[in-house]
Design a protein around this nucleic acid. Structure first.
Lengths: 215, 215
DNA sequence: TTTAAAATTTAACTGATAGTTAAAAATTAA
DNA sequence: TTAATTTTTAACTATCAGTTAAATTTTAAA
């Protein structure tokens, strides 16, 4: 049994080696410009073995993406466990996403790419775990918002579920700017970091508006 | 000369036929699942002719996308010319994007897809016009925001350029939800239309915050 | 009507690449 | 030693974007 589990471990290690090799190549050239042969070369392994461990190219990509998502998930958990009020937990999570995009820009890039139309269905294991982790992160943010509503640091006239989605969407797309927006900012000499900081100024009144403006 | 220009017109018509055929196929099956042979069949034209009129598949896709962008651009112009204050112009533009996504869901879908990493460089003509139109729309929104700042309907403590990007990003991604967000909303029985309406409630305080909260 | 240019078809071709396969070889557990 | 598992080998299929060059048809203009 102990030997069997050692074997299992080694198999897992081989799998991980392949994932790291794939990571390397995906990071360098994006998804579409990478061939399976390239990955096999990088992993110093035969191409057929890739298909022994992974169903196809997309599954391999999911495995890489999962690594990043796990990191991000941990960040969210840490933010949620901060000893502070709801508002600050939420802010910490948004900042956490920013930090993630800075510390792991490549993971962040494929995280965004994986959210594309191109990848939106799959029944394979890693894809499912990604969905679970993402759902988990969302749940944490909703919890934080609810805390904020109760302790009075976040407005109470909106559904926390919807609010969490607004925040996530905006944060994500602000960190993953399209070509036109980047151009515009560059032309105005606004760095993406300043753009991010100002996002906070922009959003704060939406998070807590003392005036319950209706219509 | 008049005959020459008639010929030109007919050539343009043929081009348009091809675009419409491509449109049909792209709308039905997305970009990646479409083959050039399919488009040629739909257009009842030989595949080689596609390459006579368009550089490659991507150029053809750009031509289709351009049609949608032109519609959207007109909407922005109309909103900008409304006889109202800056705040309401901005709101009208955001609502215009929503209307576009409802009236032309297919154009909207490829508009989003074309914003992806996959498509972010190209020197061909239609691609350039798309960039120009998008820049134009952005300019209009910045103008509207500046009017709002001057007439006092929009907060004055933020760069209008940045503000326009925040608004566009959020609106766009709220209309183009990723898989996880859609799931979450469905699970909570929140329709995407309600989600959109509530976005307005969420955002309003950020557009005009009477309290100039700093830090 | 003639002629030259432009538009269109035909069909076969290249090159890339994901994915398959089946058998042989190497490694490992027992 | 043996049987199961892992890994390699290398050749194969299928698909598709993109090319090409010659033939044919259509059109503009003289």
């Amino acid at each position: 049994m102990s030997k069997n589990s050692r074997r299992e471990r080694e198999k897992q290690q081989r799998r991980n080696m392949i994932i790291k090799a794939a990571e390397n190549v995906f990071f360098a050239k994006g998804y579409d410009n990478v061939t399976m042969d390239e990955i096999a070369n990088k992993a110093e392994v035969n191409k057929a073995l890739l298909y022994y461990y992974f169903k196809n190219k997309e599954a391999l990509f999911s495995a890489v993406n999962l690594c990043g998502v796990q990191i991000l998930h941990k960040i969210y958990v840490k933010c949620f466990n901060l000893d502070t009020d709801g508002y600050n937990k939420v802010k910490a999570m948004i900042q956490g996403l920013f930090d993630f995009s800075k510390e792991h820009p490549d993971y962040f890039r494929i995280y965004c790419y994986a959210g594309t139309e191109r990848f939106q269905m799959s029944d394979e294991e890693d894809a499912q775990e990604i969905v679970d982790l993402r759902t988990g992160m969302w749940r944490l943010m909703v919890e934080a918002i609810m805390e904020g509503i109760e302790d009075g640091t976040i407005r109470n006239d909106l559904d926390p579920v919807e609010m969490s989605i607004y925040l996530n969407l905006l944060a994500l797309s602000a960190l993953n700017l399209d070509f036109t927006s980047k151009m515009v900012l560059r032309a105005r000499n606004i760095s993406t970091d300043k753009f991010w900081e100002d996002l906070s100024t922009f959003l704060d009144p939406a998070l807590f508006s003392s005036q319950k403006m209706k219509k």
